[in-house]
Structure formats: C-alpha cells, structure tokens
C-alpha cells in the first residue's frame, strides 16, 4: 500500500463524516453501502438525457422521411409523409437515445467504465457489511491520528 494513502474503517456514517470534516482540505473520499445523502454532485445527466433525446428524435425523423421518400410505393389513401407514424418512430428513438445518453453519462461520470477499485477486497467486504470507509489519498503524518481519534475501528 502506498504510504501516502490511508484507509480508515468506521462503524457509522456519522463518525466517518466527522473525520472527513476534520480532514477538510485533504484529498479524501467516503465509501458506504447505502447513500449517505451527502450534497448532490454537479452532473450532466439531465443534459445527456436531453441531448440524447434530440439526437434520437432527429435520427428517427430523418429515417422516416428517408424511407417515405425513397420508397415510391403507394399504400392506400395515406400520404407519403404522415405525422402519426413518423411521430411514433421519432418518439421511440428519442426515448431510447435519451436512456442511452443517461446510461453513458452515468458510467462516464461515476467512473464505472474502467472498473478499477481503490479499496482492497477485505475493506470492500467491510463496506458491504455496513462499515463506512474514508480513503485519504494525500495522507500526512497526523492523518492516521485524526482518523483514529475520530473512532476509526482500524486504519490501513
């Protein structure tokens, strides 16, 4: 384990949060098995949804218009370009692309793509079983002391 990295394992979220406060300024992160309702992170998820929808809708519209204009076959009384079928295709593709946009943006922003994990298996297991873990990336001499004084069960 890198010397400048320290992992504090806490029994409760409150203790871990308090330790985070004391460590303010240090590069640290908190890990838990349920959301701790920390302040919302700035994100582009909604933007991704809207852009995805726009792109999907536009490509759906382009597809229907392309097909209606290239296929010179008459089918009954319906005009070559009608709103209702085009609308449904546009709607379906817009929704699909919107979902894809959100999914992609989530994977990108939450760092789920690479799959690299910061914690060793034993600590991840602790987290799963309810522990709350604070990872300090730029640990200094007194970091270990702060973590322990705030009630960390053990520090690695």
């Amino acid at each position: 384990m890198n010397d400048s990295k320290l992992i504090g394992v806490f029994n409760t979220g409150e203790a871990a949060r308090a330790a985070m406060l004391r460590l303010s300024g240090a590069d640290c992160e908190i890990f838990s098995s349920e959301p701790l309702h920390s302040p919302a992170v700035k994100n582009h998820l909604l933007k991704a949804a809207i852009w995805g929808g726009l792109i999907g809708g536009a490509s759906g519209g382009a597809l229907t218009v392309f097909v209606f204009t290239t296929m010179g076959l008459k089918t009954g009384h319906m005009a070559m370009i009608t709103l209702s079928p085009a609308g449904i295709i546009v709607f379906g593709l817009a929704a699909l692309a919107s979902i894809a946009g959100v999914l992609f943006e989530l994977l990108r922003e939450a760092g789920l793509f690479g799959g690299t994990l910061d914690l060793p298996h034993s600590v991840r297991k602790e987290v799963t079983h309810g522990a709350v873990v604070v990872l300090v990336r730029s640990a200094t001499a007194e970091t270990r002391q702060i973590l322990e004084s705030q009630g960390a069960r053990f520090v690695l």
């Binding site: 296929m71 076959l73 008459k74 089918t75 009954g76 009384h77 319906m78």
Partner: peptide, 18 residues
Amino acid sequence: QCDEAPCEPVCPVYATYH
C-alpha cells in the same frame, strides 16, 4: 381492389401496395 384499401397501410413489408 379498393382505391383506399385498408389492407395496404398495415403491411409492415410493403407486400401489398397500390
């Protein structure tokens, strides 16, 4: 042989057309 055939618009693959 309808001029406005109900069968035509519903075929997904243009197997029936005018």
